[in-house]
């Protein structure tokens, strides 16, 4: 599945800010961390601000911080701000044919699974999963250090 650039930037920003709740990060900081356009990210951050997911402080030491509830906000909540991933079936050339309808059933099934997946993963769950993976990789790299006692 390929998400639009703004969607991906929005997810980067929300997750980076939620992972660092005690810090205020500028658009430049986040853009540098992910190697992405600062101008584009600034526009995305404004959209996130309007949605109540980030807030900003101006001036020296200012920046953005995550202002949503990480246990409640899902990836789908963020994605939906930037693009519509609902099924676009039953429209377009050839959709009103037997084969078009059969094909739409399959495409709808895929979209349904994608929405259920994004809608069930909260910001906190994704960050927790990332930390578990890091810990598992660290244990695999240094098994002697990880063994108890």
């Amino acid at each position: 599945m390929k998400l639009q650039k703004a969607t991906r930037y929005g997810l980067y920003a929300v997750l980076e800010l939620a992972a660092n709740p005690d810090e205020q990060l500028s658009a430049t900081d986040i853009a540098a961390a992910y190697g992405i356009s600062g101008n584009h990210l600034a526009k995305v951050l404004r959209d996130l601000g309007r949605a109540g997911l980030v807030d900003s402080a101006r001036g020296a030491g200012g920046g953005y911080r995550f202002s949503g509830n990480a246990r409640r906000v899902t990836l789908l909540d963020v994605i939906s701000l930037f693009e519509d991933i609902s099924s676009d079936t039953g429209s377009g050339d050839g959709a009103d044919t037997e084969i078009g309808r059969a094909l739409d059933l399959v495409l709808g099934e895929i979209d349904d699974i994608a929405r259920a997946t994004f809608g069930s993963i909260t910001i906190e769950t994704l960050l927790k999963t990332m930390r578990w993976r890091q810990e598992r990789e660290a244990r695999a790299a240094a098994p002697d250090l990880a063994s108890p006692g």
Binding site: D112, A116, G119, S120, I121, T122, E124, T125, K128, T129
Partner: peptide
């Protein structure tokens, strides 16, 4: 169930994935 958001979110929060 695919639309069982409550339990799906719970099990994912425990680290379960597809």
């Amino acid at each position: 169930a695919r639309h069982d958001q409550l339990n799906m979110s719970f099990f994912r929060s425990q680290g379960m994935m597809a």
